[in-house]
């Protein structure tokens, strides 16, 4: 029988777990422990299966959504999650019609929205470091919904949740990351979160211009995570049979400092049935979406396509996260 729980009011604890995320900022996956992630996953799983409903657990709370960059999935899933948990939503979704267009700073925007009684701020901003800066400015928790090309921790939570749901575990997963590893914000977050699990092996598949940033490599080396790089198409094909998961990313055209660099790499890879034929039959294909032309629609109907389920998982993950950050029972 489904149970309801009372968020932030010391109500029944459906999972019997300590809420380690109450009142915390969610800025980087570096800051999250495996236990933090597993707490979110456990609650999201119960929400997904309908055994727990979190409806109205945030009644009386205000969640501010400040989105200074375009977003479809992240904004909508946070919006639906907050509303379905009973929170009031304060939103800045179109910077063109807000004071941001008049040159208002992020600092002032955060202070203003906090002054209107926000209990939590969900922020998407084009500047790297914006979420950490906002968290320093705000007294209430800040959730990073994408900080330029730096990180997107809630995407990583839903990514790893999807892997866990499909494979039963995350330890030992062999994952290929293909595409724009340099400017993608999902890649660093996913790497940092996977580094909290044992025996993970990462294959970075990208041309030199799009290879993973050095700070990500240093972090993985520090955490003892095995990784390899492939830059040529032949090397990528050789790696394919080893993979449990292939995580594909779009080339982030909007983040290239030089348009000629973008022209040099656009269309440099396409994931289609032909490429997947090099992998195992049960290889899972993931993509944070939106896609452009790097992931062929012909993959959609193959059992390998996990990406629409992955996108759907954004909702239970963000419900669970909002509930926990705002002090709900674990």
């Amino acid at each position: 029988m489904p149970s309801s729980i009372s968020g932030g009011r010391g109500g029944e604890s459906p999972l019997g777990l300590k809420n380690t995320l109450a009142g915390r900022d969610i800025i980087s996956c570096r800051d999250l422990s495996r236990e933090d992630a597993e707490l979110v996953f456990s609650l999201a799983e119960e929400v997904n299966s309908g055994t727990i409903h979190l409806e109205d657990t945030l009644a009386g709370k205000k969640v501010a959504l400040i989105f200074v960059e375009p977003s479809t999935r992240t904004f909508q899933s946070f919006y639906v999650a907050a509303r379905s948990l009973g929170a009031e939503v304060l939103s800045i979704h179109d910077p063109a019609v807000s004071s941001i267009a008049k040159g208002e700073t992020l600092y002032d925007t955060v202070k203003m929205i906090e002054g209107y009684g926000a209990d939590c701020i969900v922020l998407r901003h084009p500047a790297r470091g914006s979420a950490r800066f906002a968290a320093e400015a705000a007294a209430v928790p800040v959730i990073n919904a994408g900080s330029g090309s730096q990180e997107h921790p809630t995407q990583a939570l839903l990514d790893v949740f999807t892997i866990k749901s499909r494979l039963g575990q995350v330890d030992g997963v062999k994952i290929g990351m293909l595409g724009d590893l340099r400017y993608s914000r999902t890649i660093p977050s996913l790497c940092y979160l996977l580094a909290k699990y044992n025996g993970v092996k990462i294959f970075f598949m990208a041309p030199p211009l799009l290879q993973v940033r050095r700070e990500v490599e240093l972090y993985l080396a520090e955490k003892g995570v095995t990784y390899r790089k492939a830059v040529e198409a032949d090397e990528i094909k050789e790696m394919m049979p080893e993979l449990d998961v292939l995580y594909v990313t779009r080339i982030q055209k909007e983040r290239f400092p030089d348009p000629t660099e973008y022209e040099r790499v656009r269309g440099s890879y396409v994931v289609d049935a032909k490429l997947l034929a090099y992998g195992r039959r049960d290889l899972g294909v993931m993509h944070p979406l939106p896609r452009v032309d790097e992931l062929s629609p012909e993959v959609d109907k193959l059992p390998n396509a996990w990406y629409f389920e992955q996108a759907r998982n954004g909702l239970p993950i963000r419900k669970a996260l909002l509930h926990l950050v705002l002090g709900g029972a674990g």
Binding site: R128, G129, R132, S147, G148, E215, L218
Partner: peptide, 8 residues
């Protein structure tokens, strides 16, 4: 390493 943006 920049504490805000992680850039080295």
């Amino acid at each position: 390493a920049c504490e805000y943006c992680d850039t080295l």
